[in-house]
Design a protein around this nucleic acid. Structure first.
Length: 967
RNA sequence: GGGGGUGUAGCUUCAUUGGUCAAAGCAGCGGAUUUAUAUCCCGUUUAAAGCGCCAGAUAAGCGGCUGAUGCAGGUUCGACUCCUGCCACCCCUACCA
């Protein structure tokens, strides 16, 4: 066989420019024939120009109220999927990590919506808290306003928060995230605060809340207690000191203790030892020291003891009977067994205990009836308290010394060290490098300080006799954690957490509706809290600060109140983690479109970074379980953290030191690459692990974007004269090649459906990118050019391929639409006969295409054969025997394997090889011979044909083209 | 210090329950096309590499042997996969008093 049969020509097809004049010059005639080709045309630009064009589409969406349209289209949907937004903090520009989180949420929602779910999205913001108050206070101080009252500060904070809500809202929208941006939830809304207090009232009513005095993290510059989530660990250099504590009744004998916080020594009330260790009494010069035997060498080296003599060994029973004199305060202390925390690897084996300044110290003190003595005032200065007689407290020289470090020195530490030196009780002093908790806001080392605070009791006993902690652990098992190790993370967080300190000595937050009597007795009553909620809902929470105590009490006092009468109101606010943790009650339960089906406060999914296992995931769980009886989510999906090209965490400090050339904000990436490329980058990586952001990766993703965009453009450009209603070809009449690509696409769609359902977006990215590059660009699009361009416009073969292209481009736009929100919608608008105005309003129901087994076998063989022949063609090209493939004739020798192939495989193979002629012979082994094609090149289709020149009307055309042009 | 996670070409992502020769795409290199043209097509290198063959030598070629999924071992006929130890990075945690 020398030549593929041309398909039947449709003489009624719209062939343009058939009225040519025979006297035209040869060149003009070529041009003329070019006009008879069905060359691609489209308005879908090759150049994306995302940075400029995305905002236009955004404006269009907003004008047409696209989000609302999607929601109303899905209003009656049987399946509902609610993802509840974790509120970002309303401060600063949107960081690229925050953008990642929002984009992931948007992909989840769009993919659900595309598959027919009603998937609303109500974004939220966390508006209260220290960072804002800190900034606002700074600004006010700069403006000369030194002593603003709480109500004034709060108004300024609200304005500040709202300003950043607006700024961030614009930045989130720019990312292509659709949602109810006009009605977000803000934790500063009256309704929110009221709902939060009502939830709090339920928790109070159930007896979870108590007032206690214990050490909490305290930030000196911020003048407030901090939550665990508000401290961050940084390297720090502390003053490490070895101190001699004189033993009572044994002149010249000392205990050796070690501490890295000398300023806590005035608060020392005991010394802990480990009853399982051995201790030695060591004679050095004239003095005897008690020290852990295991640590003796270390201590001796540090202290520079030239020679020492071990006098005797001591054990716990001896130590328990000793008493020591406080080094510079007029009191004595005892030695207590603290086996759980006294270690044998650093220090002296004796631990200085200050129950007011350390958790373990506190517990030990509690067990032995020691006072929670914390001689530090709100300014972070050493101070006398009423816990001990003044005579037993620190010397006057120490009072008023500031603990806060400036340039690595702390007044209080210096003063304490001075007292020790004067008394010759300082054995050794050195710098100690370690990681130490710092205030997230002021970046200063936090101190542990005991004071009266409100707490939620985590081990509260329920009516069923189970502790709240154990109920929480059980509830965790009823939630799906993705990835599955998340369950361990939150369990260990809940298991090990201390009671929740919920009060903050700040103004910018929800006031704790507590009162105090003149005697200092606290009043916290569920009914009072509920009435306060009503009051706040009506008038806003500023009323708490604007009215007198008696006015407030008049409003909120229960009618049948018989308790004490308050004289002051609480000045504390609730921890911001109570704010955001209440969102299931304040948002999910209250917004009709989000309201859960089983329980009003339950939604389908929370999706945040893995750090939220200790943060929002936990606070939401505890509050919801305590107040509402269940977890607020069914599934918790977690993503990893953003790291830079060196796989190190993107940190603000690195930014400050010039570690990054550009700020790591979402805006900067959007301005350089466009939101769709940023979104494609988010989709490209397995977000459950660390996510690497770097210029290189963004650029790689940008290249993938271009491949995809161009595939769409090619498809659209060949549909300019296609109307699916009129021209679509039925599945069984499609050509084998078209059925092949639709079969491939069906497999792709099925895999993408699965991947979307499993939230494995990187699989979608990978598969779609490969499909566009391999099956489409390199195979299908290349092979069908000939039929699309040269067959008569209305021929069945061309319409068949257009039918396939139409289905491909429609399906691709839908597969891509959750990720490439702008581009998919832009391309969608060029699809003839599209079923919805926007791709985001369409239903993705993969149609698929099932192929016969023999058909599949035939095409597998065809592509395998293509793989075998292409290298031969390349060799011929290298040898300059042919140029392009159409100049070649291929003669194949094929073994018996061709038995059983479906009819017409020879034509199909010639088309796949894109050569002019194909000959086939039978033989024992496969062979491919490449020669120059016979005949002459047809001016129109570029095929080489022997019949060129035999058509009088078109001497330069082949038979197929003569017919197509219309003789 | 404790808990958790990750580690596969320069980059990204795959690889049934342990099973041939570790896959695909991108990037790189070389080439072609100009009827998708700031696109697309074809070929090809690279996963430490070493040894060997061919050759006067170089370039190139061959692929016979060993090796190769962070590193080092182990179990197994056979390991990316299971086990042990280590290293690096990330997250969480910790008052190292």
């Amino acid at each position: 066989m020398a030549r593929v049969q041309t398909p039947p020509i449709n003489h009624h097809a719209g062939v343009r420019n058939t009225n040519r004049t025979p006297v035209l010059s040869r060149e003009a005639q070529v041009m003329d024939y070019k006009n008879t080709l069905n060359l691609p045309q489209t308005g879908f630009p090759m150049k994306a120009d995302l940075v400029a064009r995305e905002p236009e589409r955004l404006a269009k969406w907003e004008q047409s109220r696209l989000y609302e349209a999607i929601q109303s289209r899905r209003a009656g949907a049987k399946d509902v999927f609610v993802l509840h937004d974790g509120p970002p903090f309303a401060n600063g520009d949107v960081h690229v990590g925050t953008a990642l989180n929002k984009i992931l949420k948007d992909i989840v929602i769009k993919s659900k919506s595309l598959r027919g779910f009603r998937a609303p999205y109500v974004p939220g913001w966390d508006c209260h808290g220290l960072p804002i108050e800190f900034k606002v206070s700074q600004e006010m101080r700069k403006a000369g306003d030194e002593a603003a009252d709480p109500a004034t500060i709060r108004k300024a904070c609200e304005a500040y928060a709202r300003r950043y809500v607006d700024l961030q809202r614009d930045q989130f929208r720019r990312l292509g995230v659709l949602g109810d941006w006009g009605r977000p939830y803000l934790t500063l809304d009256r309704e929110y605060e009221a709902a939060e207090l009502r939830l709090f009232a339920d928790i109070v009513e159930r007896g979870f809340v108590y007032r206690g005095r214990k050490p909490v993290y305290w930030s000196i510059p911020c003048r407030t207690a901090l939550a665990e989530a508000e401290v961050e660990y940084q390297d720090h250099v502390s003053q490490s000191v070895y101190v001699k504590f004189p033993i009572v009744g044994q002149p010249g004998m000392f205990l050796l203790i070690w501490t890295t916080t000398p300023w806590t020594l005035p608060a020392n009330l005991a010394v802990a030892y480990n009853s399982s260790f051995f201790y030695s009494a060591v004679l050095v010069g004239q003095e005897t020291y008690l020290v852990s035997t295991m640590l003796l060498d270390q201590v001796a080296k540090k202290a520079g003891w030239e020679g020492y003599q071990i006098l005797r060994s001591l054990d716990g029973s001896v130590l328990a009977s000793l008493e020591y004199q406080h080094p510079f305060c007029g009191r004595t202390g005892r030695l207590l067994a603290g086996d759980s925390f006294v270690t044998n690897d650093t220090g002296t084996g004796f631990v200085h205990c200050a129950p007011g300044h350390g958790m373990e110290d506190y517990h030990l003190g509690l067990a032995h009836g020691l006072p929670v003595y914390s001689p530090v005032d709100d300014e972070g200065r050493l101070a006398l308290t009423s816990d001990l007689p003044v005579a037993q407290q620190m010397p006057a020289e120490l009072v008023g010394k500031s603990i806060l470090e400036k340039h690595g020195k702390s007044e209080a530490n210096e003063a304490v060290l001075h007292e020790l030196r004067v008394r010759q009780l300082l054995l050794h002093q050195e710098n100690y490098h370690h990681s130490y908790p710092h205030c997230w806001r002021s970046k200063t080392p936090v101190i542990f300080r005991a004071m009266d605070q409100w707490f939620i009791r985590v081990d509260h006993l329920g009516a069923d006799g189970a502790t709240f902690r154990s109920r929480a652990l059980a509830e965790i098992d009823r939630v799906a954690w993705i990835p599955d190790w998340g369950v361990n993370r939150i369990k260990s967080a809940v298991q090990s957490r201390p009671d929740w300190c919920i009060s903050r000595q700040r103004s910018w937050g929800v006031p704790i509706p507590a009162f105090y009597t003149a005697a200092g007795e606290a009043i916290l009553d569920a009914r009072v809290v509920r009435r306060t909620a009503d009051l706040f809902e009506k008038h806003g929470s500023n009323i708490w600060y604007e009215r007198t105590v008696s006015e407030l009490w008049e409003w909120v006092r229960p009618a049948d109140w018989t308790g004490p009468v308050p004289s002051t109101r609480s000045g504390d606010t609730l921890d911001v983690w109570i704010d955001s943790g209440s969102s299931s009650a304040a948002v999910i339960a209250r917004r009709p479109e989000l309201r859960g089906r089983e329980q009003p406060f339950q939604c389908d999914m929370y999706l945040e970074g893995s750090d939220q296992h200790r943060g929002w995931f936990q606070s939401s769980l505890l509050l919801s379980l305590a107040g509402q009886g269940g977890a607020p989510y069914r599934t918790v999906l977690t993503h990893g953290f953003m790291v830079d090209a060196d796989r190190e965490k993107i940190s603000k400090s690195k930014q400050g030191q010039g570690g990054y050339q550009k700020p790591q904000t979402a805006e900067r990436y959007v301005k350089e690459y466009g939101a769709d490329v940023l979104r494609l980058w988010v989709a490209s990586q397995d977000f459950r692990n660390d996510i690497v952001v770097s210029e290189e990766r963004l650029q790689k993703v940008g290249e993938t974007y271009r491949v995809i965009r161009n595939a769409l453009r090619y498809q659209l450009s060949n549909l300019y004269d296609f109307d699916p209603a009129k021209h679509a070809v039925a599945d069984e009449s499609l050509t084998g090649l078209d059925r092949w690509i639709l079969g491939e696409f069906a497999a792709l769609e099925a895999e993408c459906v699965r991947a979307y359902d499993a939230c494995e977006y990187h699989v979608v990215y990978q598969r779609v990118a490969q499909f566009a590059a391999v099956q489409l660009s390199s195979m299908y699009h290349d092979a069908v050019k000939d039929r699309l361009y040269t067959d008569p416009a209305g021929s069945v073969r061309r319409r068949s391929t257009q039918t396939a292209l139409h289905r491909l481009v429609s399906g691709l736009c839908q597969v891509l639409s959750p990720v490439l929100v702008f581009t998919a919608d832009e391309a969608w608008e060029f699809i003839p006969g599209r079923p919805a105005a926007s791709v985001h309003l369409s239903d993705w129901t993969p149609r698929g295409l099932v192929r016969r087994e023999s058909e599949v076998r035939t095409w597998d063989w065809l592509f395998a054969t293509r793989e075998r022949v292409l290298p031969e063609l390349e060799k011929a090209r290298q040898a300059k025997r042919i140029g392009k493939a159409l100049e070649a004739k291929v003669v194949l020798t094929l073994p018996a394997e061709v038995e059983g192939l479906e009819a017409g495989w020879e034509d199909a193979l010639r088309e796949l090889l894109n050569v002019s002629q194909l000959g086939v012979g039978r033989g024992d082994a496969f062979a491919a011979e490449i020669t120059s094609a016979e005949g002459t090149k047809c001016e129109r289709c570029w095929h080489w044909e022997t019949e060129v020149g035999t058509h009088p009307a078109h001497p330069t055309l082949c038979g197929r083209c003569s017919a197509a042009v219309g003789a």
